[in-house]
Design a protein around this nucleic acid. Sequence first.
DNA 1: CAGAATACCTGCGGGC
DNA 2: TGCCCGCAGGTATTCT
Length: 271
Amino acid sequence: MPELPEVETVLQGLKPHIEGKTISKVTIRRYDLRWPIFKNISQKLMGQKLHKITRRAKYLILHFDQGAALLHLGMSGQVRIVNKTQPINKHDHFDLEFDANKILRFTDPRRFGAFLWAGIHYKDHPLLISLGPEPFDKKFSGEYLWHLAQSRSVSIKSFIMDNKIVVGIGNIYAAESLFLSKINPKLSVRKLTQDRFSSLVIAIRFILRKAIKRGGTTLKDFINSEGNPGYFSQHLNVYGRAGLSCYQCSHILQMIHIGQRSTVYCEKCQI
DNA sequence: CAGAATACCTGCGGGC
DNA sequence: TGCCCGCAGGTATTCT
């Protein structure tokens, strides 16, 4: 269930362990993830140095000598650095082994995750090419959102969860940022003023920054952690609180569905 | 083209 | 105890 803060946490956890190291072995146990893993990925990666790891949206980008590989955690994906003594569990789908006995192990029960070779021109990969700006990109502003909104008719919640508008905002942080900025998630984007969009942008950045900071506290345990970045333990105002009372006004929080996704909000605070 | 619905997959909790 | 059902979540793909 990773959203952007979780992916960022994973990135920061991986970096110190494997950046600058060379692949010595690749073991694929299941090729059928969201998309099939390239059949010759093992040969391809063998002996290549991993120069750095970066992130774009919720994709981790592994930069090798001959190009980049994309790693997406889907909804249940997890990566850890393990050593050879770690037993293989049911959903451990592949290992990237580096020298010094450091193994990147990918685990994903639902197999919505992906591991794709994207080559030198990875920036043109179809999965990346039409993504909107990062939430922390200066381009992402109230003005930017307002302009795009004028030709759309979706709800504000669907709008901010659309990757072409802005990346990295999933169901949880969409609900939370709308609560913080006091916007009703059902509201049509065309009814929002630029000022309200600006508040939303601030709320989104605030929430994400807070979550990333929180995730960072688990980094030191990265090697042996069970991969719980403290996601649900953080203070959520509305997500998962349907039927409970609003922390702001005590009104009972409502659960509705927007675009097939459960949405919790306060009908008193969010107008 | 925009928007809505569907599909992918597994584990878990609730109801019976 | 066991079974069936609904739900969760990211996002590409298919349908209207």
